Simulated scan of single mutants.
Amino acid sequence: MSERVVPAPGARRRRRPTKQGVVLSEELIVGTALRLLKEHGAAALTVRRLGAALGADPSALYRYFRDTDDLLLAVADELIGRALRAWRRTGDWRADLRELGLLIHAGALAHPQAAVLSSYRVTGRTNEIRSVEAGLGVLRDAGFPDQEAVGIYHAFIDQALAFAVLDAAAESLPRESRRADEEMWRATYARLPSDTHPHIAATARHLVADMNRSAYPAALELLLSAAGARLASFTSGRRTKP
């Protein structure tokens, strides 16, 4: 999609049939973009391919999005929105953050090409704003001071999105490359001799079993444990004040 200026915001939201009879909307375009990315990769995300997939004149898309970057922000926001729609707060701050993080990560793996292209962006859109509000609410309601809540939320969301991009990029590799990477732990690391690589040799079976899995669940638990320890110190400090 080339750089274009869109009409006024109201025009972007109108829902009327195109010449081909298709009723376009931002939701339909974003959903189609996600499907094209999943099926054909980043190269498929052009105004021509989108128009063909939607059965619409490609120029009609510019009523809704300025350019590819504008569309990618909407795609990123939709991935966040899908995680939020599946998330339910329980009142247990650890469980709530754990579930939200795992949902964000799973959503990225469900759409790896889209995640690689968009997960590192700041959208400023509805779902991202809801996510920030919800995450801060979980932490502040748990008793974290405001500055600490912001710092922990920052670490939490960046960890989730960073692992989303990392693991989605691995999922996006050609099958042969992915298999070669996975086999490397068995074919190379597990065969290194103990006289030259004693620590690798001693842990080889664990490396083979563990390194082809995502480290995100374990990293998330480490972050939540560290946050819990900090909360305990704040709570203890408040109790001991005269």
Rank of each mutant, 00 (worst) to 15 (best):
M1G: 04
S2N: 06
S2W: 03
R4P: 05
A8H: 15
P9I: 04
G10Q: 14
A11W: 12
R14S: 11
T18Q: 01
V23S: 06
L24M: 04
E26R: 13
L28H: 09
V30G: 09
V30S: 12
V30H: 10
V30L: 11
G31F: 07
A33Y: 00
L34N: 02
L36R: 01
L36T: 02
H40Q: 07
A42E: 02
R48P: 05
R49G: 03
L50S: 04
G51T: 02
A53G: 04
L54K: 02
L54W: 05
P58F: 02
S59P: 02
S59T: 04
R63G: 09
D70I: 11
L71Y: 10
L73P: 15
L73N: 15
A74K: 08
A74E: 08
V75K: 01
A76P: 10
E78A: 14
G81C: 01
A83R: 02
G91V: 11
G91C: 12
G91T: 14
W93D: 08
A95S: 14
D96K: 14
R98K: 14
L100Y: 05
L100E: 06
L100T: 07
G101A: 09
L102S: 10
A106P: 02
G107W: 00
A110D: 13
P112L: 07
P112I: 01
A114K: 01
A114N: 00
V116M: 03
V116Y: 01
Y120T: 09
V122L: 11
G124T: 14
G124H: 12
E128W: 03
I129Y: 04
I129R: 12
R130A: 00
S131I: 03
S131Y: 03
V132Q: 08
V132F: 08
L136R: 13
L136V: 11
R140Q: 12
A142Y: 13
G143M: 04
P145D: 08
P145R: 06
P145G: 05
P145H: 07
Q147P: 08
Q147H: 11
E148R: 13
Y153V: 12
D158C: 03
Q159V: 06
L161N: 04
F163P: 00
A164C: 03
V165I: 05
A168L: 03
P174E: 13
R175V: 14
E176Y: 15
S177Q: 13
R179L: 15
R179H: 11
M184W: 14
W185Y: 15
R186M: 03
R186P: 00
A187R: 10
Y189I: 14
A190R: 01
A190D: 01
P193A: 06
S194R: 00
D195A: 09
T196F: 05
H197P: 01
H197A: 01
H199A: 06
I200T: 02
I200H: 00
A204S: 04
A204Y: 01
V208C: 11
M211E: 13
N212D: 05
Y216T: 04
A218P: 05
A218F: 07
A219N: 04
E221L: 10
L222P: 09
A226P: 15
R230T: 10
L231P: 10
A232R: 14
A232V: 07
A232N: 10
F234K: 11
F234D: 02
T235W: 07
R239T: 09
R239L: 09
T240L: 10
K241Q: 13
P242G: 15
